[in-house]
């Protein structure tokens, strides 16, 4: 099994498309950081207008932690695309390239192979998120230093400097589960497709539609909202509250994991009986 996973990872990391995600994050994140470094102060002022009426501010809120939080919040919709680029191709790419004919005629059970591919996809996702966390934090801190983190929701939260890092790391951890869910969705679509464009587009369509439905506050949409997995993807933000609502976070993580299992299960059921015609 390990050898199969290693083979799949070797295949993933032999391809240019795999590095698109790493390059995109490697460019996008510093860009956001530099922009914030230059202009972030104005944004914070703007966001805190009404507090300014009652309070004098002492100290600096523009720091690497804030940049990291903002990056997490803004890249929420973009990272799935970078992930799907690879995970949506895991099965469909073999179908499109005709390589299933050499791959599935090896003495390896389809279930094992599928699992190896799935695990490899999860590892790729983790690597991408780790990369994002690494440059978001390290570069952000290098440019802007550390400091207290302000998070503006219905409540304005200000977290002491020494109370931030674990929250950000936990948020990345939760984000990873959310992105694994995205990866699983695209993997499922990938098992049905014979070209990799289909699963990529389909995954993004599902995610964007679900997010739109969640955002529109109509009674019909409110009813379906709990059934949309995207609804649980944003729960990393719950780490930026006091006290942290661990029950809600665990519930969201549970919902996402349930979806991961469901998506993999469907992919497995489909792949096991699939006739390879390409």
């Amino acid at each position: 099994m390990f050898s199969l996973i290693r083979i799949e990872l070797y295949k993933i990391f032999s391809r240019i498309r795999t590095f698109i995600g790493f390059i995109a994050i490697g460019l996008l994140v510093p860009l956001i950081q530099v922009a914030l470094f230059i202009d972030g102060e104005t944004y914070i002022e703007f966001s805190l207008q009404n507090l300014k009426e009652a309070f004098d501010f002492q100290g600096n809120l523009l720091n690497g932690y804030l940049a990291c939080y903002i990056i997490l919040a803004t890249l929420y919709v973009h990272i799935p695309f970078l992930i799907t680029l690879v995970t949506g191709d895991l099965l469909a790419g073999e179908a499109a390239g005709g390589t299933f004919r050499v791959l599935l005629t090896r003495p390896v059970s389809r279930t094992k192979l599928l699992f190896a591919k799935f695990i490899s996809g999860l590892i790729y996702t983790a690597a991408l998120i780790f990369w994002m966390a690494l440059i978001s934090l390290l570069l952000g801190i290098a440019i802007m230093g550390t400091g207290d983190l302000i998070v503006i929701k219905n409540t304005v939260y200000i977290f002491a400097e020494d109370d931030v890092l674990w929250r950000l790391l936990a948020a990345f951890g939760f984000g990873l589960i959310a992105m694994w869910c995205v990866a699983s969705l695209s993997f499922m679509f990938s098992s049905f497709a014979d070209n990799s464009i289909g699963p990529i587009i389909l995954t993004m369509t599902v995610i964007i539609s679900f997010i739109v439905i969640s955002a529109i506050d109509l009674s019909l949409f409110r009813v379906v909202k709990p059934f949309l997995f995207t609804n649980y993807m944003g729960s990393w933000k719950l780490f930026f509250e006091t006290p942290v609502n661990y029950d809600k976070i665990l519930m969201s993580a549970g919902a996402l994991i349930a979806h991961i299992i469901l998506f993999f299960g469907i992919a497995w059921y489909n792949f096991k009986k699939k006739d390879i015609l390409t």
């Binding site: 966001s47 009404n50 009652a54 919040a73 503006i152 929701k153 219905n154 304005v156 609804n231």
Partner: peptide, 17 residues
């Protein structure tokens, strides 16, 4: 006074509703 906080950068889209 609590004005509508501008969501701005750290905007919380999910809780808007």
């Amino acid at each position: 006074r609590k004005n509508e906080l501008p969501l701005g950068l750290t905007g919380d889209f999910e809780n808007q509703g």
